[in-house]
């Protein structure tokens, strides 16, 4: 099959098999910033924004995502002009191995987009689909709070 996707703002025509999972199609086409940790919808390393909703790309058929808008971690900021959320993760020391981090940062970004002033419980709930084995989540939590504060100040 073939389909047009809008990935990080650019139109991409990708070909794939009818039963292919979106995660695999993205990775096979160079979007390797979307990580694959379990293929079970459990670890959250593969989350993306699909039509502005945070989803596990391992739980979506590529065929069902044709025409949709996809945002990966590279779509919210890059190494030259990072998003405040990415900067907050760096500053708080919330990045250890970093494998889960693209997913975690996107989940946090998605949270603040819908709820710019989350309380602790809301932060935890928003990140409940992202496993991290390195940090113990302490500094991840700090990072989201810091980013929320910064982003509120800069509005």
């Amino acid at each position: 099959m073939e389909g047009l996707f809008i990935i990080n703002g650019s139109e991409k025509k990708l070909s794939f098999d009818s039963g292919d999972i979106l995660l695999n199609v993205l990775r096979a086409n160079g979007f390797t910033e979307v990580k694959s940790g379990c293929h079970e919808g459990q670890c959250g390393s593969c989350v993306i924004l699909l039509n502005e909703e945070l989803v596990n790309s391992c739980q979506v058929f590529a065929a069902a995502a044709v025409g949709k808008d996809i945002v990966t971690i590279k779509g919210i900021g890059d190494i030259h002009s990072p998003h405040p959320m990415q900067e907050a993760f760096v500053e708080t020391g919330a990045v250890q191995c970093g494998f889960c981090i693209p997913g975690v940062v996107l989940a946090a970004y998605y949270l603040l987009k819908n709820n710019p002033d989350p309380d602790d419980e809301e932060i935890c709930r928003a990140l409940d689909g992202n496993l991290c084995r390195c940090t113990g989540y302490v500094k991840i939590h700090e990072a989201v709070k810091l980013a929320a504060k910064r982003m509120a100040e800069n509005v």
Binding site: E53, V60, D128
Partner: peptide
């Protein structure tokens, strides 16, 4: 439902 599965799965 707010406790069901996880945030990204609740979106699917």
């Amino acid at each position: 439902l707010q406790h069901a599965a996880s945030t990204p799965l609740r979106n699917i």
